[in-house]
Write a protein that binds this DNA or RNA. Structure first.
Length: 562
RNA sequence: CGGGGCGUAGCGUAGUCCGGUUAGCGCGCCUGCUUUGGGAGCAGGAGGUCGCAGGUUCGAAUCCUGCCGCCCCGACCA
């Protein structure tokens, strides 16, 4: 493709709105432009990359027997009401104003709708149906360029099986296909166990990329490879002690002592001798959650333990519930449900709030004083704690979710009545799996992992062109002739070449645009080299340059472009 | 949705506190000549509802009120 005829609007300056490298570079290299918050137009260069990625995805999905659909983005609201997800998505779902339609944020309902009544026998399964479609979500705060938008391209696949054992097989097929897809894209990723959240179902895993721009937090063990979303991660930690002798309960005046740290300093004790109280509202009733010291409540774990959504109590509710404000709340004399983190199990001689401002209680024995206390794993894992598998230290960092695979089960097929007859002629709900990939995120993550101060650095996995040919001074007959010849020769040999044939810009502009766009191999045709019948080759990644004979170019390109 | 910041030509910005020439600069763009291996030089030129709407004032980019948009932090998030 000739640069002079292309629309590749590169930018020298950094747009002030962009912060993260992938966003800056995708704007600067002319791949995307923002239309509105979280809404991006893909320009030819960016869309070309999207097409390359979706080609890889299609090939691997087809390889496991996937069949591609193209479903409507505009959906009747009624179908979504049948599964309760209009409410579940809430404000995140876009509603059409002048008709009872919604803009689909995902497609479980619609795929299930098509399965219903059409997959009638166990003999017709397994089925794997997928599509690559724009999804719409009314994100409260779009961010990080293309990584979290209000509309985004997703590959979503759904498996339909006659049993949970069969679902396991479909799930494994997807797991392996996803590994191939991300490997072929050259992305450095890892897989974590995850919470399935509002999607329903049980087992789920996420394909993650480590990045400060990420919105998920994961715990990762370098040593054994253990990886889990912080929402479900566990670690080996020291439990609180149980002393041989339990003290009696006694009240302590603790004026203006609010935090655990202040309490520890005031009393000269260790944080493991304290129990922190947090009040949550579950099913409109308060629940006191008791944690050891400064341990953080993990709300996902809490919701799993209680079996439903929770919210922290508002500060103004606390006094009415407990009799005290935050900082003085505790389990003794608390008139509502109390649950505790496992770390506190059977602890004694503990200090906690007295449910009276400026007072704490010491000598608490959880076994003696709260005999009915329920214990759950409720704490959030922290960096440096020991891995449950190998005992080495865990790292905790931010990551971008690229893909997510779920064993959904029968949530949607039951709600929509998608059933089949099994070997015994008995009616059963179809067992589903759901598998997503954020297509633009693959692109953004690739860029996040492959750039330098000059621009993007594509490699053999992903690249917009095979070769970037620069005709430096396109007013000189010798340069025009030589570069046009090379261009034709490479095209005939089947290479995808970006030919910078502009005669309006300086050589420096071409060099910088080439480095910014980041095609792996640059062929530089200038008068200087042509005097010796030579052309310069530059390897974008290493910056290495060398001259080759004009006649040997094709062979050199064959060696360099895989 | 809460907190903070910002909105001036395609991009980056000065001017705003303290109202007063024709709103300035760099990049980019157009024309001509020169230049041509790492973002050129000279000359000429086009391009602005100063986010929008009200208000105050002889006079508003500047002050006041309301709204809209964008970025960052938080909440939320399959």
């Amino acid at each position: 493709m000739k640069f002079s005829k292309s629309y590749i609007p590169t930018m020298k300056e950094v747009p002030s709105d962009a912060i993260i490298p992938s966003h800056i570079l995708m704007l600067r290299s002319g791949m995307v432009r923002m239309l509105s918050a979280g809404i991006y137009s893909f320009l030819p260069l960016g869309y070309k990359m999207i097409k390359k990625i979706t080609t890889i995805i299609r090939e691997e999905m087809d390889e496991i027997g996937g069949q591609e659909f193209h479903l409507p983005a505009l959906n009747p609201r009624e179908i979504w009401e049948q599964t309760g997800r209009v409410e579940a998505f809430g404000d995140t779902m876009f509603h059409v104003k002048n008709r009872d339609y919604v803009l689909a944020p995902t497609h479980e309902e619609i795929m299930t709708y098509h399965a219903k009544g059409n997959i009638k026998s166990y003999k017709e399964m397994p089925q794997i149906w997928y599509q690559i479609q724009t999804k719409f979500r009314n994100e409260a705060r779009p961010r990080s360029g293309i990584i979290r938008g209000r509309q985004f391209l997703m590959k979503d696949a759904y498996s339909f099986d006659s049993s949970f054992e069969e679902l396991d097989k479909s799930y494994d097929l997807h797991y392996n296909a996803y590994r191939k897809i991300f490997d072929r894209c050259g992305i450095k990723y890892f897989v974590v166990g995850a919470s399935s959240g509002a999607m329903g179902g049980n087992k789920s895993e996420e394909f993650m990329v480590k990045s400060d721009a990420g919105e998920d937090t994961v715990a990762y063990c370098e040593h054994c490879g253990y990886a889990a979303n912080i929402e479900v991660a566990t670690s080996n930690i020291e439990a609180v002690k149980r002393y041989d002798e339990s003290k009696e309960i006694y009240e302590i005046s603790t004026p203006n002592i609010k935090s655990i740290d202040e309490l520890c300093e005031f009393l000269g004790i260790n944080e493991r001798e304290t129990a922190k109280s947090r009040i949550y509202i579950f099913e409109e009733k308060p629940v006191l959650v008791l944690m050891s010291g400064n341990d953080e409540v993990n709300e996902t774990k809490l919701e799993n333990a209680l079996g439903g959504a929770v919210r922290p109590a508002h500060p103004e509710e606390l006094k009415e519930i407990s009799g005290a404000d935050a900082g003085s709340i505790g389990p003794i004399g608390f008139g509502h449900r109390i649950i505790a983190d496992l770390r506190l199990k059977d602890g004694n001689n503990l200090y906690s709030g007295a449910n009276k401002n400026d007072y704490h209680i010491g000598g608490i024995d959880l076994k003696r004083d709260l005999p009915d206390l329920e214990y759950f794993d409720l704490r959030t894992v922290e960096k440096g704690e020991k891995c449950t598998r190998c005992g080495e230290e865990l790292d905790v960092f931010k990551a971008i979710e690229l893909g997510h695979i779920f064993k959904l089960g029968t949530k949607y097929t039951e709600a929509l009545g998608a059933t089949f007859l099994n070997e015994n002629g008995k009616e059963n709900p179809i067992v589903m799996g759901s598998y997503g990939i954020g297509v633009e995120r693959v692109l953004a993550c690739y860029v996040e992992q492959n750039f330098d101060e000059k621009g993007i650095v594509w490699d053999e996995h992903l690249r917009p062109f095979d070769v970037h040919l620069l005709g430096l001074n396109m007013k000189k007959e010798s340069v025009i002739k030589a570069s046009e010849e090379i261009y034709s020769k490479l095209n005939e040999a089947g290479y995808d070449v970006l030919f910078d044939d502009r005669n309006s810009v300086q050589a420096g502009v071409k060099f910088n645009d080439a480095d910014l766009i980041g095609v792996p191999v640059q062929l530089i045709v200038g008068e200087r080299g042509l005097k010796e019948n030579k052309v310069e080759i530059k390897i974008r990644k290493t910056g290495e340059r060398f001259n080759v004979e004009l006649d040997n170019i094709l062979e050199e390109v064959k060696k360099l472009v895989k």
